[in-house]
Write a protein that binds this DNA or RNA. Sequence first.
DNA 1: TTGAAAGCGCTACCAA
DNA 2: TTGGTAGCGCTTTCAA
Lengths: 354, 354
Amino acid sequence: MQEEAQGSSMEPVTLRKVAAAAGVSVATASKALNGRGRMTPETRKLIRETADRMGFRPNALAQSLLRKRSFTVGLLTNDTYGRFSLPLMAGISEALVDKGVSVFLCNVEDDPRLAQLHVNAMRDKRVDGIIATGKRIDRRLPIDLSGLGIPVVYAFTEPDPASIAFVADEAGGVRLAIEHFASLGRRRIAHVSGPASFAVVHLRAQAYRETLERLQLAAFEPLLGTWSEAWGHEAVRRLFEGTQKPPDAIFCGNDQIARGVIDALRERSVAVPDEIGVIGFDNWEIMAAQSRPPLTSVDMNLTAIGREAGLALLTLVDGQKAETGIRRLPCRLVVRESCGQTTVKTIEVQSTSG
Amino acid sequence: MQEEAQGSSMEPVTLRKVAAAAGVSVATASKALNGRGRMTPETRKLIRETADRMGFRPNALAQSLLRKRSFTVGLLTNDTYGRFSLPLMAGISEALVDKGVSVFLCNVEDDPRLAQLHVNAMRDKRVDGIIATGKRIDRRLPIDLSGLGIPVVYAFTEPDPASIAFVADEAGGVRLAIEHFASLGRRRIAHVSGPASFAVVHLRAQAYRETLERLQLAAFEPLLGTWSEAWGHEAVRRLFEGTQKPPDAIFCGNDQIARGVIDALRERSVAVPDEIGVIGFDNWEIMAAQSRPPLTSVDMNLTAIGREAGLALLTLVDGQKAETGIRRLPCRLVVRESCGQTTVKTIEVQSTSG
DNA sequence: TTGAAAGCGCTACCAA
DNA sequence: TTGGTAGCGCTTTCAA
């Protein structure tokens, strides 16, 4: 038996029909269902019940036209396959869904034409606001979002001047990691990170130096390479085959590097965590939890960043003013087994804001 | 200097204003801009230029109200952080953006309440259709989408009966892998896969057996475990410490298992690919490309599945009928270095449909 | 060739 | 307490 699928379209239930069925005017029906105006409780009850029985759902298109508010926002990103934008989206969605706000997902790659296409579609559909996110905090989306006449909030991407932006407090995250090492008695802490072309590499290296200085510990020269396991391997070779005494702790710029570091250490029969501790960055669950031993890692709380961005956008949409600037939200340290702890726990600090 | 961000809202440019500025009626302006009706080329040109100059963009809300078509679809998923839904979304978006259709992203976890909330919001906003996706082809979303009066297409999730669904041709993918092994002279091909609770595990094991039989090769008993690197390790131990002669090829149920297998083989000093070949499943770039050696893997072409699902939904929205049933789209084999090839290439087969 | 008028589904104002 | 009416921004007859 071969059936046919179709958009079976029974006539929609309009307010007019509900009103007719309940024997009242559309105006009264509207007020009854929106909880406005005055009327006898019986009338209101009758109308409500009629609407429920008929399965009435108000047409948001008509409401939006009138209210000049579509309860819709656009999420612009260039992080197609990324592990950064997904937790971000989860947070955004979480903050908005309960307020009846839906999210248009717009992936623009790095294509200005595609970006313009999406932004046009969003404007036409009268989104209440836009959240811009990306995969790097030091790269702009391929389109200018200022002067659109729509509130815009940036999260985890390079913002326009005089806008509101949310990012992770990277320096705070680094401090958590280094202080964790120090509290466990590690004294020779190295830093293996990504390419110099990334702003976060400098941010983290700087925080690494400052924290060590504050703790009166000697710093290694940060080793910069790529965001790969292969580079983690190579870095270990350099640290252990050089002339200086090897470290007893390695703070890595991301979890992949850390993974490579751990593998390389095992191949050299250097015991993790007994002889050396390792901490990663990103807390990418699937990477961190499956390394041997499981990796302690700094988590940027991207979901929280998304949530804050969503809420901030709503206040702007509400017409309230908000201070511009970059807000840095605290990271947390997810402790697994690569530093000598065995119980999984989390360490947080207050945001240092900015 | 502390500035204030706001939703700066200059009065929007309406068709009425464009018409006034051009000295014509709204009706004429509408027709001019939509390329309908008849009028002198000069009038049309004048109106178009005026609209452009004023930055006019039609209010899609008003258009939708009238046309009963919102140029908006909903994407329902329970794969929050997943690597499956993302490529799928990319394909969907790709198929729709050029037709001016925007996508509401709705993550429903496995929460029926959340799912209902999102579906209600989508209905209210009069989406033209819904695409349902998930992280497993043998699990339903926590909500019934039939009888909504809206076209629904399923992609990579358990569909309703009498609906249209798209999935990967898993059996075809398995055949690609096994035949690749065979063509390289491998004769003792083992299969290490995930938990028996997954339908794909049985699908793939079955295809594994059938393909070996067709090639007149002996099959190993498929080893079922978890989708983890740790299980890949353990499986290698079993294959090499048992009484039977070890395999010269291992076909893995996903890339993580394959990764664990490769690592375990290295620890045993069994050379990949010289002594044994390894193929994974999913072609999860970040996992497959970074293993040592880089992993040959079956790619389910999720983006293509997403694209097809998007196009299918559009035809339904158009009011055209379409055959119901499950469509299986072909996989491809991405050849890296874990089987003895050194150049990266791709092998495809025609869909076996169904 | 052009435009007046009706109406999509709803809310809001004001009069009854 | 209730309902008639106007109108959100647009498209579409239909008449001029």
